[in-house]
Nucleic acid binder design. Sequence first.
DNA 1: AACGCGGGGCG
DNA 2: CGCCCAGCGTT
Length: 286
Amino acid sequence: MCEWYAEHQRDLPWRDPACGSWGVLVSEVMLQQTPVVRVLPRWEKWMRLWPTPAATAAASTADILRVWDRLGYPRRALRLKDCATAIVQHFDGIVPSDEARLRSLPGIGEYTAAAVVAFAFHGRSVVLDTNVRRVLCRAFDAQALPVPHLTRAERERAAALVPAEPQRAALWAAASMELGALVCQKAPKCAECPIKSRCAWQAAGMPPDKLAHRRTAQAWHGTDRQVRGQIMAVLRASQHAEREELLAVVKAPHPQFERALASLLTDNLVVEFHGADNALAYRLPT
DNA sequence: AACGCGGGGCG
DNA sequence: CGCCCAGCGTT
């Protein structure tokens, strides 16, 4: 599989050896629940503007959110800025290289900490994202898809597969993820798979997902999340907006509009203030 | 353990 | 139009 990776890996900017640990961390946060093609342009701009944790910590929140643009889940952008601030305050502006300290940072959970260890520092860690989970559950369990939530058994099996030597462990992490992303997709391209002959799912005749009927996709149309996104889009495009302007643009029932706006205030993604004629108005945080 | 959280592109 | 996609933090 590592030979396959050497030949087929995508040429991504955060894989450049000169990228640096901050660039890797930024890419991993942006890639949480977000496809590579959508991350690329925002990552390029972010790294051009704020190439270090110190530069990011010094940026205004409004600028951060505008560069984040429509990447989605904008709370991640706030966490990334908070993460940069914490790195400056607690780690002298240097991205820590061990999982415990990485996990202490905002927005860095189990997966992202392991990924930064492997991809930024070429250390040994158990990188277990949705791609790797799919590869392993097919190769070893003959299941089409993993169960919805990561289990202890999966962690233990994955850990046992990671090579002992750090450099090889990091290569294993990259290769297993890339195989899941490019070949062992939900609709797999088994003809291109380097481990096809050793795959339990393949040997079992590629049985369909047993839990298919229990998997329900996240709703989108008409949800609070969509309304939040519309409000954020308006505020990214202007310095501020009064309630009436927002209501006119955002197509949602009034109670839902109020709920979405209130949640954005709670999340510190939007600030309320009194504008001209004392009218209530809203803007991005400074 | 379950839930809330964006958005665009594709079949 | 349904469905997917390099998770995290909170409850």
